[in-house]
Design a protein around this nucleic acid. Sequence first.
DNA 1: CCTAATATTGACCGATTGGTCGGGCATTGT
DNA 2: ACAATGCCCGACCAATCGGTCAATATTAGG
Lengths: 215, 215
Amino acid sequence: MGDLPLVIEGEGRQRILAAAEKLFSDKAFDAVSMNAIALQAGISKANIYHYFPNKDALYLAVLRAASQSLRTLLNDAVDAHGAVVDVLRHFARCHLQALLDRPEWVRLVWREILEKGASRAQEFAEQGFADVFSALVAVLEAGQSRGELRVDFDPALVATLLLGANVFFFQSRDILRHYPHVTFADDPAGYDAGIVEILLRGLIPVSSVDTTSTR
Amino acid sequence: MGDLPLVIEGEGRQRILAAAEKLFSDKAFDAVSMNAIALQAGISKANIYHYFPNKDALYLAVLRAASQSLRTLLNDAVDAHGAVVDVLRHFARCHLQALLDRPEWVRLVWREILEKGASRAQEFAEQGFADVFSALVAVLEAGQSRGELRVDFDPALVATLLLGANVFFFQSRDILRHYPHVTFADDPAGYDAGIVEILLRGLIPVSSVDTTSTR
DNA sequence: CCTAATATTGACCGATTGGTCGGGCATTGT
DNA sequence: ACAATGCCCGACCAATCGGTCAATATTAGG
């Protein structure tokens, strides 16, 4: 009695996972102590060991959950309906928005990729994002075979370029914001619109001064 | 006597910095102990404190040195001679090669950006790469005013796209390597060649079925 | 050869780390 | 009513952490 049960369906385990996710998302593994996690979760440190055998297992559980959530979130961005150019525009927009909506998950997964070179990254990012990548490649190939896109480029390369543009934006928008020429740091939609437009049209004028048949 | 003086000009301080750079480059700050650094440098832990007041100062010195070295390395990639398209090709190639040649520096700086949001990242990456970014933007603007490039795109956006493509390649080539469609994971030159070509020409066929007037 | 400054060290410190242990508290099936 | 079972905690542990200090090598100058 007395203590107000703020978390009814609490299920201690979820509290722990949430606390760990929050802490692990903005500090490295060794920089997050079990004490801090227990404090954040509002429980005792010893209690964590009732649900998880050790720190690694807890971290792995958090990473697994975040990775899977992020995976489905990103997969939802691929909607292969309509003309290829529209699909690309839609994907770029949704994909970047998904990254920005759940920065904790992205940071969690990306930190793991940075630390463990290709060892554990294989288990998550590789297996976890291969489908997004494949879906994007498939869209591009369809566009090629349907004549909507040129056929003399590598679809996987374009997919990498598009994914990389979004990830890079996510990672360095805080830095880009301070650059004098950058006007899109706070406008992800505008950024993606510009990116896709450049990818589609190219930087070189169509041929000579023919020009402005843009539309 | 006895001990072979492998390092003549050793200058203890450099040994420490080198050891710390190596360790900090593939493990996070809290995951690297002063003991480990001392061991790697082949000296005693207490001796480190003769050259550096504390762990933070040592880390900061390493970060500063790596950041500056990386900065000059990347700046050298910008060579604004010749036609704009050639400059872009040359820059992309050299920039990515610089990243791949000194992965320790890149990982060091990039980890710092990941950890400290925009606080200390400002001091290094921002200040350190603003000139590369500006130079690239200047090249693109020159290309626009000279009529070699279209004028209806944002130069800063293209610069971000190009830099991001290289950084993303550097970060995730270990993952990309395992993707079925990817053939360029071990061919940075080919990757950049393809990237630049796409940026210049665009994905959409010149007009309709005119086609294959490539090259 | 002596001295003074610089390098370098082993031993040590309090604090914090991941992890353990034994026992309370509450719910539940019987 | 009672035993059982899961949940939860304070206290504790050995190991390691960053950092200090007094004492010793090593070097340079006169």
